[in-house]
Design a protein around this nucleic acid. Structure first.
Length: 256
DNA sequence: ATGTCCTCTCTTAGAGGA
């Protein structure tokens, strides 16, 4: 079973790239972030025509998350992260597909830091920790994947010293990610590729992709049940080089 | 400070977010 995550940065602007990638990579499940489309403008027909079912949670202009599945039924569990009914951002959707609970998340960017946006990021992180702990306690197979907007360690950044004051790499952010992982989650990419330079995002600015000035910010966290089933994990890096690409590349895992 | 790309609007230029 192949599960992928892809921050598309605009599902309608990205539609040709998304469809091309789905046809080539053929994930069984694809989690999408940054739809940047209201509920009614999700391109369901094109995605159905490509052979995928979908559930999504849209929002005008910003955010937005979706879960696509090629053959198995998608049983939606929730479409918001618990813990703050006043948080209206579309940043979380959760479903059961093929007996695996899949949480698709788009963690706040948090810049500029410090400031209210950074506070919102840390608050969201805390709610994610609380929810993730409950999922672990349920003792079922869980994948928490998406754009975490965190480089977990120095090897996940092309130039760590330039990023220490950024909301994606500040000590508080890295500590929040570590605290989450330390609950008992496994970072799938690092489980299989502990020391390799692996990036999932390259800025549109300054030819970042051409210089491989990248960041690893899209992650797969696996509950203990799934760790023995993890076969492969990788990044479809070439997709970032396609015409009209997102600034992120798709990331995927394969489970036995 | 800047670079670039996406979306939306008091729209064809500028703002906001990343």
């Amino acid at each position: 079973m192949k599960i992928a995550t892809y921050n598309v940065n605009g599902v309608n602007g990205r539609l040709p790239v998304l469809l091309h990638w789905l046809a080539e990579s053929k994930p069984d499940v694809a989690c999408l972030q940054e739809l940047k489309a209201p509920e009614e403008k999700f391109p369901l027909q094109a995605i159905n025509d490509a052979g995928y079912h979908a559930i999504w949670h849209g929002q005008k202009s910003w955010n937005g998350v979706a879960i696509l599945s090629r053959s198995k039924h998608i049983q939606e569990v929730r479409r918001a992260l618990p813990g703050d009914p006043e948080d209206l951002h579309s940043r979380y959707i959760e479903a059961i597909v093929d007996n695996i609970l899949i949480g698709c998340l788009y963690l706040p960017n948090g810049n500029p830091a410090p400031g209210p946006k950074f506070d919102y990021k840390l608050g969201w992180f805390k709610r994610l920790q609380e929810h993730a702990a409950k999922l672990l306690a349920e003792d079922v197979p869980v994948v928490l994947t998406g754009d975490y907007n965190v480089m977990p360690t120095e090897i996940d950044v092309y130039k760590p010293e330039r990023w220490v004051d950024d909301a994606l790499f500040r000590p508080e952010t890295r500590a929040a990610y570590k605290k989450l992982v330390d609950q008992g989650w496994t970072d799938a990419i690092r489980k299989l590729h502990p020391t390799e330079t692996i990036y999932t995002f390259w800025d549109y600015f300054r030819n970042a992709y051409g210089r491989n000035a990248g960041l690893r910010i899209d992650h797969f966290l696996l509950s203990p049940h799934l760790v023995p089933r993890l076969k492969k994990a990788g990044v479809d890096k070439e997709v970032r080089g396609w015409e009209k690409s997102s600034d992120h590349a798709p990331v995927w895992i394969e489970l036995k």
